[in-house]
Amino acid sequence: MEMINVSIAVMAGTPTDTEMGVNLIKASSLSSQQIIPVSISKNPREQTLFQTRSYDERHAAIKKIVNVLKKKNVSYLFVYCNSLSSAIDFELLADTLNIPIVTPFMIYKDIAHHYQKVGVLTANAQGSAGIEKVMVHSNPKISVLTVANISWVEAVEKKLEPPKIILRYGLLETIAFFENNRTEAIIIGCTHFPYFLADYQKYTELPCIDAGEAMIETMIEYFKTTDKH
């Protein structure tokens, strides 16, 4: 496939997952002329505070940012943050502002049809609630078991070694919990967590699913559709 030249804004909760989103795009066939990183907050706890503000405040703040991005000729918005995707109705924003927006939640809608019971690792309760909502609405028969811990996010922000994060912050216990409850897969429901995903996967035969690559594929399809018009 030929490299596609588009202008993409990568929006995430903190500079760390924003950078991870940028790197994901750079490693794909989406070679944009310009990638604009947009971090909503300085750190994970500040981001959680933002996500727990009133919906009108959150929506107005993100809408203002997207309008500024459009003035910079941004063609697409890549929202690389699960809890932020839960805090904002990006589908409504995409329709209102007429800009294609890709979020992890678009991927979870499809994943939900393939399982009856899944485990989910998230950064905070905002992410947990949002992922459960989108999956249950997509598949009313699915059971969603979630474990949230902002300490995992902070450990990634500090760039601790992945094996140490797994062993010191209770992640092995989450595997035991999910396996004992007979989940069929584990959703990596925070964009910080691919940082330790390879090490986490070593401890379980359950498939650990990261939405990142599917988000890239969705972005490419969006571009193809838009390009035809």
Rank of each mutant, 00 (worst) to 15 (best):
S143K: 13
H113P: 00
N98H: 12
D95G: 04
T122Y: 11
L93A: 03
G119M: 03
L93V: 05
P104A: 09
I131K: 02
K109P: 00
H113N: 12
S138L: 10
S143E: 09
I131C: 05
A125E: 15
I107D: 03
I131G: 02
E132K: 14
N124M: 08
V102A: 09
V136F: 03
F105W: 08
S128M: 08
Y108D: 05
K133N: 14
M135C: 11
A125R: 15
V102N: 04
A125G: 11
G130Y: 02
P100F: 05
T96H: 03
D110Q: 12
S138E: 10
G119Y: 08
P140A: 10
K141R: 11
L97F: 09
S128Q: 13
G130H: 04
D95L: 12
N139C: 05
A129L: 12
V134A: 09
H113Q: 13
Q126E: 14
S128E: 11
A112Y: 01
Y108W: 14
S128I: 05
G130P: 08
D95T: 12
V134Q: 08
D95E: 13
L121M: 13
V144Y: 00
D110G: 06
H137E: 15
D95V: 07
T96A: 12
A125N: 15
L93G: 01
G127E: 12
H137G: 11
P100Y: 03
T103V: 10
A125M: 13
Q116A: 02
V144C: 00
Y115Q: 01
T122W: 11
D95H: 10
T103F: 05
G119P: 13
V136R: 13
K117L: 01
K141G: 06
P100K: 05
K117Y: 09
V134E: 10
Y108T: 01
K117S: 14
F105H: 15
Y115I: 03
K117F: 09
K109F: 00
H114F: 10
H113Y: 08
K109E: 14
I107H: 03
A94G: 11
I101T: 06
A129T: 12
I131F: 01
N139A: 05
I99K: 00
F105G: 07
V118Y: 03
V102F: 01
H137F: 05
L145M: 12
P100C: 06
T122N: 13
N139R: 06
A112T: 02
Y115M: 02
A123I: 15
H113W: 09
D110A: 11
N98L: 09
E132G: 01
L97R: 03
T146I: 00
T146L: 00
I101E: 05
N139H: 05
A123Y: 10
T103A: 10
V144G: 01
G119C: 07
N124T: 13
K109L: 03
K109D: 06
P104I: 07
V144D: 00
M106K: 15
A125T: 15
I131V: 15
E132L: 09
N124Y: 06
K133C: 08
I107L: 04
H114Q: 14
T146S: 14
V118E: 02
T103N: 11
N124V: 12
N98V: 06
Q116D: 09
N139V: 04
I142T: 04
N139Q: 06
H113M: 13
P100H: 07
M135N: 08
I107P: 00
L97A: 07
K117I: 04
L121C: 07
